[in-house]
Design a protein around this nucleic acid. Sequence first.
DNA 1: CCGATTAGTAGCAAATTGCAACCAATTTGA
DNA 2: TCAAATTGGTTGCAATTTGCTACTAATCGG
Lengths: 147, 147
Amino acid sequence: MAARALDWTDATCPVARTLDLVGDRWSLLVIRDAMDGARSFTEFQRRTGIARNILTDRLGKLTAHGLLAQRTAASGRRQEYVLTDAGRDLFPVILTLRQWGERHAFAPGEPHSTLVDQHGIQVPEIALTGADGTPLNTDTTHVRKTA
Amino acid sequence: MAARALDWTDATCPVARTLDLVGDRWSLLVIRDAMDGARSFTEFQRRTGIARNILTDRLGKLTAHGLLAQRTAASGRRQEYVLTDAGRDLFPVILTLRQWGERHAFAPGEPHSTLVDQHGIQVPEIALTGADGTPLNTDTTHVRKTA
DNA sequence: CCGATTAGTAGCAAATTGCAACCAATTTGA
DNA sequence: TCAAATTGGTTGCAATTTGCTACTAATCGG
């Protein structure tokens, strides 16, 4: 695996750096499936439908960038891919992508998978609020460069 | 612009549908810049560094999918691209991508842009909590198919 | 009216992706 | 216990996507 020699699309922007790492057609779907229990090459391939050589590449890159790790499976001698802390920390990204899709990419009544908590209760729509309780959105925030 | 004939990567998963719409190398950076005030073709090109023909394609697709709209600029007769409600609603996605990047894609002390509110105060890290106050993460949630 | 800027298009080369076949090692099951 | 199936890839090639460098037509500013 090529050592990390990333030259960032936009080195000062955290959004751009994150997208350099996971902003392709497949990486976030691999992360999604890892969050939902996928561990093996074949299982990732089956769930995503990704081409096998591309999957090889993505698993390698995600591992090289510290989002996945390879370890020996408990039951025997096979290897498996598991999320690292950094990989698990993408949960808010996956959740917000999910909730946007539910709101804007499905017709009313069209069926789709949902995210539920331990009790099987559907996860509520998250509302972003700032320290003072005001909602966070494009009107109430802006980017300050290179703080 | 080809009429909408999307065949989804995974039609039942809202995450996958969202990524089908914005999960390429550039779309979310265009959205990011639109949120931060970019309106014109040239301005998007300058901020992202995207190739001009690809930018043409992405602006067209985002417009076709209802994330951007073209309207006549206030000051004259030129056209400009503005976010629709659906486009603005990607704010939580951009914010969570930003915060993940801040946590995992920068060395400690390395400078980067930050998001601030109206008072110039830095937006705090968002913490996802469920209805009962328990934190939402990969351990406390799971996907239920085709609810 | 002239030069600069805007908003693209066109052509082509390079890089990425996807498909299908192949392969070695491991696991399963009769 | 031995054959068949499964796993986890790799390889080669074709198709698609991307990026670069012109080029153009319309507009804007002075």
